[in-house]
Design a protein around this nucleic acid. Structure first.
Length: 734
DNA sequence: GTTCTAGAAC
DNA sequence: GTTCTAGAAC
């Protein structure tokens, strides 16, 4: 199932713009007698505007209902795979297949069945207890591999209520939004089905945290309806994995589109603690949204409030609807802004914080929640950007990948924004001066949205000359993303143990971390002197030392460096820039004094990348080093990101260019400038699961990965789009 | 780095 | 049965 779903998903990637096809749903209820299946059906059918049919046994009745455009509940025990099989064939590809498992304790089911009267199957009284008991051992929980697109587990009444709300709120034309899972995920070191539910980790690091499934929302969201994506047990899948064994999270129809749409989630500014008038505030929100919506391209703005009965959401959605604001690009949303993705399936790469003027945690409300959820990473990053904020201003803070908000929610930036204060209990109260108040609130939203625009634009502008930075600085205190994220990521990662090529000699990649530079160099020297490379690993060294012998492969040569094609290119374009200095075998040998040399290598590599871009604008490039190269002689890889090559054959090939094992040249130089040495990644990175370098989806093997990357058009990660790590023609003058 | 291939995975 | 990985040899 994993296979077919994955294939389906790739066959029909969603762009986020295409019209979602509305399919009837076959919901196979799974549960013991007395588990509440019929009640669930009744409840859904009572509140739903979608046509439903409830079918107990008869396949043909179900088929007819589907033909009539109805969705169907299969209201029988469906206790094992066999019982479910025929119903899964209903409607073929034209229907979505869901299972809802009412997994209540047998004891409860027995007590309910015994008590009930008037049961359709006459299963009540003492007879019911016996039947339930007989069924218990036969119970086989549904798996996606049976053909389900979606499985919901309900263990208590709350879960049931949520399931009822989910199905009940599905309108006649709605696609089932939860089908748009964004990433199939797979355990790094195992192919066992029950481990296909590891956490999706935007950082690409091996998952170690509880399972979180990603899902996204439909484009059909109406401004007129606050959307609450129902939390089901799949959202907190870890607790279910053990039971379901194969709670896969792939999709038949979904792509990764919605997750890749830049989205700003923002709270209403100043209306909570600062007591800004709601009518006025809602006018301003809608006014500012209207002003900016044309400037955000495909990106989205989402006004978020924790409370379902939120007055401000209600006012805004009404006013937005009156102004015919595109509901795909702006909508209101009920949820915890720090858990929109994990709890509500809404991926927002940027969230706004209704900050205080000192940009400090605490104070309650959104500010406290965001700082708490983001951990110390946000505090530290914020401190680096600004120490205080004026009313009406905002500040963009890139979130380190070590932050839970990043790993769990996929938030890459927090924009702190400070609105006007109308609360006499808070500092700098404007009293009733709404002239000034409205002015400041407008400024605040302008600044916030301007900041978001700059993030969106900088992501769309991969730079050739390290210019991937915000274009405009409206009212916000401009923040230029740094490579801190990468650095933090690297530091957080596992350090090296050994390198087999060094024939048993261990080399601590973190050597010198606590020693002086001189000691480091001496240590390195002593290691270098005894280090030996296998004969096959000497090829590049030989070229660098004796270029005349290799004229056929040398594309360019200077005193310091030479350029050659990689003998086994892993992409359409794959060059190596070699140093010609003897004794610099790898990046581990590099120290501060080599910065000019590395800059030369970068400049030469960049020149070739630009040359290739002029020949083929669709390419994009990364320039970087392998943490632990296989071949002796320091060499910079200049590699196009299509990875379209028959020479790319195994996991090591892939991971050496797409995990933190690959050190971007710009980061290497920056780290040398900052700390005088480069933190390397050990080859554990090379054993990581196979993930698409663009959308980060996981793939079970190389052929499947390659099939995927041949068509994946997801934007590159925010990290890559910063600081010139990615070199492409987009938005450049080349 | 690649090639070869046993055996695991499918 | 075929496909694919991963480890050894070079």
């Amino acid at each position: 199932m994993m296979e077919s779903m994955e294939i389906d998903r790739e066959k029909a990637p969603s762009t986020g713009e295409e019209k979602k096809e509305t399919k009837p749903i076959v919901v196979v209820l799974v549960g013991l007698p007395g588990s509440g299946k019929s009640t669930l059906c009744d409840e859904v059918m009572r509140i739903s505007s979608r046509p439903w049919a409830r079918v107990c046994q008869c396949l043909s009745v179900a088929a007819t209902a589907l033909k009539d455009g109805k969705s169907v509940f299969i209201d029988r025990c469906n206790i094992d795979r066999e019982q479910r099989a025929d119903f899964l064939k209903l409607g073929g590809q034209q229907t979505e297949k869901h299972a809802v498992v009412l997994d209540h304790p047998a004891k409860l089911c027995i007590s309910r069945s015994v008590k009930r009267t008037g049961h359709e199957g006459n299963l009540q009284g003492g007879k019911a207890a016996a039947v339930v008991n007989q069924m218990v051992p036969k119970k086989e929980l549904p798996k996606l591999s049976e053909g389900f697109d979606r499985i919901t587990f309900c263990h208590d009444e709350r879960d049931v209520k949520e399931a009822v709300n989910v199905y009940g709120s599905l309108g006649p034309l709605d696609s089932s939004f939860w089908l748009f899972w964004t990433e199939e995920v797979r355990c790094q070191d195992s192919t066992r089905d029950n481990e296909f539910l590891k956490k999706v980790d935007p950082s690409g690091k091996a998952g170690s945290e509880p399972t979180v499934c990603q899902k996204s929302i439909p484009n059909e969201l109406s401004v007129g309806e606050d959307t609450v994506l129902q939390r089901t047990k799949m959202d907190s899948g870890a607790l279910e994995v053990g039971k379901s064994n194969e709670l896969d999270i792939t999709s038949t129809s979904g792509g990764n589109s919605a997750d890749s749409i830049p989205t700003l989630a923002f709270p209403s500014i100043s209306t909570a603690d600062f007591q800004f008038n709601l009518e006025k505030a809602s006018d301003i929100i809608v006014e500012k949204v209207e002003e900016f919506i044309s400037r955000i391209g495909k990106a989205r703005l989402v006004l978020v409030d924790l409370s379902q009965g939120s007055k401000i959401l209600s006012l805004v959605k009404t006013k937005a609807a009156q102004k015919n604001i595109d509901s795909n690009k702006f909508f209101t949303f009920v949820g915890d802004i720090t858990r929109l993705h994990s709890q509500r399936g809404l991926h927002c790469n940027v969230i706004a914080n209704a900050a205080n003027w000192r940009l400090k945690p605490g104070g309650g409300g959104v500010n406290a929640a965001i700082f708490k959820a983001a951990g110390s990473a946000l505090e530290i990053a914020t401190k680096e950007k600004a120490v205080s904020l004026s009313p009406g201003k905002s500040v963009i803070v890139p979130l380190s990948s070590s932050s839970p908000l990043f790993t769990r929610e996929g938030v890459t930036h927090v924009i702190h924004v400070l609105g006007p204060n109308m609360n006499p209990m808070r500092p700098d109260c404007l009293k009733d001066d709404y002239v000034q108040g409205c002015k400041i609130l407008r400024e605040a939203y302008s600044s916030l949205f301007e900041g978001f625009v700059s993030i969106v634009r900088s992501h769309g502008l991969a730079s050739i000359h390290n210019s991937g930075r915000p274009l405009e600085s409206g009212g916000f205190q401009e923040v230029i993303p740094t490579n801190d994220d990468q650095k933090a990521k690297r530091e957080a990662d596992y350090e090296s143990e050994n390198n087999k090529k060094y024939k048993g000699l261990r080399r601590d990649l973190k050597s010198g971390a606590s020693s002086s530079m001189d000691e480091e160099k001496n240590q390195d020297k002593s290691v270098n002197m005894t280090k030996s490379w296998a004969s096959w690993a000497q090829a590049l060294h030989d070229v660098a030392m004796h270029p005349n012998k290799h004229k056929n492969v040398v594309l360019e040569i200077s005193d310091d460096v030479l350029v050659m094609n990689d003998a086994y290119p892993k992409a359409q374009r794959h060059l190596l820039v070699l140093v010609r200095v003897d004794g610099l075998d790898s990046i581990a040998d590099i120290r501060r004094e080599h910065i000019p040399l590395l800059k030369t290598m970068h400049a030469v590599g960049l020149k070739w990348a630009v040359k290739f871009l002029n020949e083929n604008k669709s390419l994009s490039f990364r320039l970087g080093y392998h943490s632990v190269p296989s071949m002796r002689q320091l060499h910079l890889h200049v590699i196009s990101q299509d990875f379209d090559s028959n020479h790319l054959k195994n996991k090591k090939h892939w991971n050496s260019f797409t995990t933190p094992f690959f050190l971007d040249s710009v980061d290497v130089i920056k780290e040398l400038e900052d700390v005088g040495r480069v933190t390397l990644k050990d080859d554990k990175c090379l054993a990581m699961e196979l993930r698409c370098h663009r959308c980060r989806s996981a793939h079970p093997n190389i052929p499947r990965l390659k099939a995927h990357i041949s068509s994946c058009q997801a934007p590159f990660s925010a990290d890559l789009l910063q600081n010139g790590r990615l070199v492409s023609s987009t938005g450049t003058d080349c």
